[in-house]
Nucleic acid binder design. Structure first.
Lengths: 334, 334
DNA sequence: TTGTATGCGTTATCAG
DNA sequence: CTGATAACGCATACAA
């Protein structure tokens, strides 16, 4: 059996297709009696609106595009959870694109906006492709692009972020307040805005405490488990080792911790470590990881709400969410 | 400026819209000279096909729906990665729905198929809603629904899975071969097919080794970190404790491990533990977690390929993927 | 309150 | 090889 169309419903109910359409969208402007008959016919036929036809006619896809650098990464997938919640509450569907932080792949998704597959986009990483300059249909307003998490200072009002520099500073300040004086930092990947912001916060905390910067204490990293392990290899070779380490994210801290532990370094007795993000598994480390919590789910939700507000014609207001220092077992006085 | 349509391109190139369409889909049947002119006009206007119009006319959405129980969960998001890879390679877009294992929410997504938003679906959990009986347009074949991971014995050919019972058996067999005789199991959530299959494998391994079943060694769980912690609370109260524990998934094992460790229980000296899944962070446990690896990314990819093959009209062949015992530090002789 | 008729931007079927 | 033209299924301005 073929799918019923609006014509089938209209025929069965003995009305015009216009009335059927009205029953579905503006039920109150149709007579109660007619409405009942139509709705009955809808049920009887098992009718469903055709999304393509509706979208073609109404010039809206009722869909948002979400571009994520790595969909398999738990950090991003938790943001996705928040987005999904708000999107489905608003009756929007969520199209997901995995960019792998590649400009080329990102450009594929720009096209989703160009061909009207989505009404707006949520970017969970610094945009690499040109997301601006998306031509708009005559009667329509600009296509909103909201950036979440990886937000520079010049990204405009469609952004959701925490104050990464301040958060990093708070993390390092925590170590300082415990009495640490030799504090290292394992950085994020190069050319990433978060890396710069967290490094800045780290340095600022040192400055404020009158501690000097030691370049050999700033270890390279790339947010992955491996780079945490690599950081341990560099750490262990240091002549004069830090007594505490601030990691630009939890995953590196966890990679470091497991390697360090296997090598007989005891945390926090021999070394304090603090991460960033408070991912789900940070609490299962042994010892549990002290870290900075980012409200990931809420960040996603806020981004979606921001997008919705713009779609509704409101003026966008950038969202700054609070972070939180979560003290667990991996930090202690030196 | 409004978005260019096929008419704009046709006008600029001085051809009919039919020719433009042909240049885009079957370039070889149009004269080289015309083609060049048209493609030039396409570039000049910045033309993009309108997805809705195309989908309406061609009766295909070029989209697959993926329904996942919890998008924030790392286990599923890694499967998503594999799906995304294959989907984007095939030029399909990926629509994601979060079901929360709720029938009602799942039904929302069934509708995506009904209204033509997607051409097929990939389910990462046991279907709760009615996914069969989806009416099909006259000239079209049935809408394919592929189930990944949570696959019962009666799910038909559109499935991708590992042999969970055999994998569980292998896990327990590993413990037995180390010399363990008192082996417990922390189960998955009730009414889940994986729970049943893994429990079955656990019992089978005991049977084969001539070990008796001890109901008090089968602890309840629900795949979450918390239930791992709860399992520890029950474990510690046991008069006669198991010397080894097989967990129905890694997350519970990790929850257990961190609690146990905080309570002074040393793994594997006091107790061996083995998980299931080999999630990304299983290697960062201290000690690193022995577990059964499921090829998550490959499972997603295989599911997508299966769906594609059905869409291409081929006869579906159920996919059974190999699991692998990954021995790390959390298991040792008693 | 309801019906008629047009168009949204494509693809595909015809002729030419 | 190319051009008219008719759907695809729906929403809405306009009439009644």
């Amino acid at each position: 059996m073929s799918r019923p169309t609006i014509d089938d419903v209209a025929r069965l109910a003995g009305v015009s297709i216009a009335t059927v359409s009205r029953c579905l969208h503006t039920p109150d402007i149709v007579a109660a009696k007619t409405r009942e008959r139509v709705l009955g016919a809808v049920r009887e036929t098992g009718y469903n609106l055709n999304a393509a036809a509706q979208s073609l006619r109404s010039r809206r896809a009722n869909t948002v595009l979400v571009v994520v650098p790595d969909i398999g990464n738990t950090f991003f997938s938790e943001i996705l959870g928040g987005i999904e919640r708000e999107a489905s509450a608003a009756g929007l569907t969520m199209l997901i694109g995995n960019s792998g932080r590649s400009k080329t792949r990102e450009e594929v998704y720009v096209r989703y906006l160009l061909n009207g597959r989505a009404d707006g986009a949520l970017l969970l990483a610094e945009p690499k492709a040109r997301w601006s300059d998306i031509p708009v249909r005559a009667e329509q307003r600009a296509v909103p692009i909201v950036t979440i998490s990886e937000v520079g200072s010049d990204f405009g009002p469609l952004t959701v972020s925490i104050d990464n520099a301040a958060a990093a500073e708070a993390a390092v300040q925590h170590l300082i307040s415990l009495g640490h004086r030799r504090i290292g930092h394992v950085c994020g990947p190069e050319n990433n805005i978060l890396t710069a912001q967290r490094l800045q916060g780290y340095r600022r905390a040192l400055d404020k405490a009158g501690l000097r910067h030691r370049p050999e204490f700033e270890l390279p990293g790339s947010f992955g488990l491996d780079s945490g392990r690599a950081a341990f290899a560099r750490f262990i070779k240091l002549a004069d080792r830090p007594s505490a380490l601030f990691f630009a994210n939890d995953e590196m801290a966890m990679g470091f911790l497991s390697t360090a532990s296997a090598a007989g370094i005891q945390v926090p007795r021999d070394l304090s470590i603090i991460g960033f993000d408070d991912i789900h598994f940070a609490q299962t480390c042994i010892p549990a990881l002290t870290t900075i919590r980012q409200p990931r789910s809420e960040m996603g939700a806020a981004g979606m709400r921001l997008l919705l507000s713009v779609l509704a014609g409101e003026a966008p207001v950038p969202v700054r969410l609070p972070f939180e220092l979560v003290v667990r077992g991996s930090t202690a006085p030196p």
